[in-house]
């Protein structure tokens, strides 16, 4: 069986966000990372492969991006992915990215495709579900656990106030969130060395219309300074009478 992990290349979570010209994200000095969810998904994919007694024999990562994303992809290879696909195309909107991934992987026979619930840059919450639709595959979202169970997958899905354990046949798209793995794997020395020679295929993107575009950015309005009080009584009084919040 084969697992695909979709990885998004995003600014480090502590990045100070700046814009130039009103509608361009300023990339100067930005550190790039694998989107935190995708890092956890990759970690889980590798664990599944290792504990499958050879049943899962491949973990591939895919990214839609231009050459600048290669260090991020190499990091995924260093963490342990077997090979990578980079669809050479500048991501413009979610539909375009999902379409590019679908075109690149549709006849490759992946049994399980992981996507994160959202990218920490544009918070699209889109790619996983769109990809499943474009590939006409089953999808399960809010996934916080995956196990191999014969030819099927046992999936833990979070619901309001609890969870469901599901049995889902391959192929499927699992859209993951907290819990899928607890600590992301980090590359070791051997991983970093072997990553250099692992296959990273750059394939050309296909033409696809843009269904949406960002026309402007705005920063949140600055908050008035905090009102500091001395006592619990004062605080509750303000929350009740001034903020009318309790």
């Amino acid at each position: 069986m084969k697992i695909l992990v979709c990885i998004s290349h995003v600014p480090d979570t502590t990045t100070k966000i700046k814009f130039v010209g009103g509608n361009q994200f300023d990339k100067t000095g930005v550190q790039w990372i694998i989107n935190p969810w995708d890092e956890l998904a990759l970690t889980r994919a590798l664990e599944l492969k290792e504990s499958s007694a050879g049943k899962i024999d491949n973990v591939t990562v895919v990214n839609v991006g231009q050459a600048e994303t290669e260090p991020t992809i190499r990091k995924a290879l260093a963490i342990g992915a077997d090979n990578a696909i980079r669809v050479n195309s500048l991501p413009k909107d979610a539909y375009g990215v999902a379409y590019q991934i679908a075109e690149a992987v549709k006849d490759k026979g992946f049994d399980l495709i992981f996507a994160g619930i959202e990218s920490s840059d544009f918070n699209g919450v889109s790619i996983g579900g769109m990809l499943a639709e474009l590939l006409d595959m089953q999808s399960v979202s809010a996934v916080s656990g995956v196990e191999l169970d014969g030819d099927k997958f046992k999936i833990k899905r979070d619901i309001d106030g609890g969870y469901e354990l599901l049995s889902v046949a391959a192929p499927l798209v699992a859209i993951v969130q907290k819990g899928i793995a607890i600590v992301p794997r980090i590359p070791n020395m051997r991983g970093i060395m072997t990553a250099k020679t692992k296959p990273l295929a750059a394939v050309e993107g296909v033409a696809v219309d843009c269904v949406s575009e960002i026309i402007a950015y705005e920063m949140p309005k600055p908050k008035p300074p905090v009102k500091l009080v001395q006592s619990a009584g004062e605080l509750i009084n303000l929350l009740h009478n001034e903020a009318k919040a309790i």
């Binding site: 909107d93 539909y95 699209g124 889109s126 579900g129 639709e133 859209i175 949406s212």
Partner: peptide, 24 residues
């Protein structure tokens, strides 16, 4: 809704109709 159920369905509908999804 921008919750587990909405997040699971909205992008699938967008995929079906070749549409943009704006979340949150």
């Amino acid at each position: 809704a921008h919750n587990n159920e909405g997040k699971a369905l909205a992008p699938r509908l967008a995929g079906k109709f070749k549409a943009a999804v704006v979340s949150g």
